[in-house]
Write a protein that binds this DNA or RNA. Sequence first.
DNA 1: TCAGACATGTAATACGTTACATGATTAA
DNA 2: TTAATCATGTAACGTATTACATGTCTGA
Lengths: 177, 177
Amino acid sequence: MSLPHILLGLLERPQSGYDLRRAFEGGAAHYWSAELSQIYPALKKLEAAGHVTATEVVSQKGPSRKVYERTDSGRNELVAWIRTGPAESASRLAYVGQIEFAHVVGDLAVTTRLIDTLEVSFQSLHDLLVDVEAELREQTRTPRVLHELIAVQLGVATLRARLDWCEDARELLKRAS
Amino acid sequence: MSLPHILLGLLERPQSGYDLRRAFEGGAAHYWSAELSQIYPALKKLEAAGHVTATEVVSQKGPSRKVYERTDSGRNELVAWIRTGPAESASRLAYVGQIEFAHVVGDLAVTTRLIDTLEVSFQSLHDLLVDVEAELREQTRTPRVLHELIAVQLGVATLRARLDWCEDARELLKRAS
DNA sequence: TCAGACATGTAATACGTTACATGATTAA
DNA sequence: TTAATCATGTAACGTATTACATGTCTGA
């Protein structure tokens, strides 16, 4: 049950469901994602549980927004979740399987193409996270900023490692052909 | 629809459902996982589709096993999947959120404890993968071995990066306290 | 004899994606 | 005028976890 807790965390600042989805396309993309069809019901359940409150706000552009705000109860629930220790779950990176099994194709160029395509995705997320990291470095080092910095650095480190791997893997494939 | 394809890939060597689950606890753990309750129905569907065949084999220990073998049709399906390009999906690493939001706890020691616990998991998977990598390095460099090596190196590189991050993050937290 | 590994399965529940439904505002 | 973005929601379907159900063999 992580999505509700992730939403509670992101609601450090009051936001609408629509805003929260944009977080999953931006700085939060490296660790979580959810569709609007999952976010809206999740927010309703959090409201029913008293963890957030909703306020209808007239929007400048488009229909009126429902801005959600975290309550003390929601804050307590978030703290309790964090105190239970790391919420680890299994990785599901199908593309690694595709590479591992790609020998059945009988054409190393297919593997190289897989890696080239992956590299583009890795690079764009990496660049985005580096920007987020730079912004955080310019801010006063409050506990909040410190934690955000640590979290984004995990993403940057992971993506740097994967980008390096792309080069190394391509080199191994070139030597083998 | 990745699980069936992952299973087809792992069935490079004929195996039972029980065997396949053990793969997800071993060398395949860094990119995929599935429970037996998901594996058994998936194998049945693959059999119905003609992508695998099942053979009942009497076991030395315990009840008789159902050993699945990939057919030509299954091999073609696997190749087609790999040729469609990388199957990318969103990351879901709730523990990164826990760290990002941990400032609400108001106690940096909690964040440090999260990182310490994560480090233990990272280390054990890292060590396992390093062993797998070493074994592959000793084998003749066939295309199959080359691809397995490349895949496992992505896991090793990712985990090395995360282990380094654990140290760096702890250092930042120490300076801040 | 009893716990743990071996071995296969189904059922209930929870989580996540895609498709559907509606409508306003803005910029090209 | 028409496409894109803003904004909220439901329904249908697919994927994954937990719990249930059954039974054998081996070693302590």
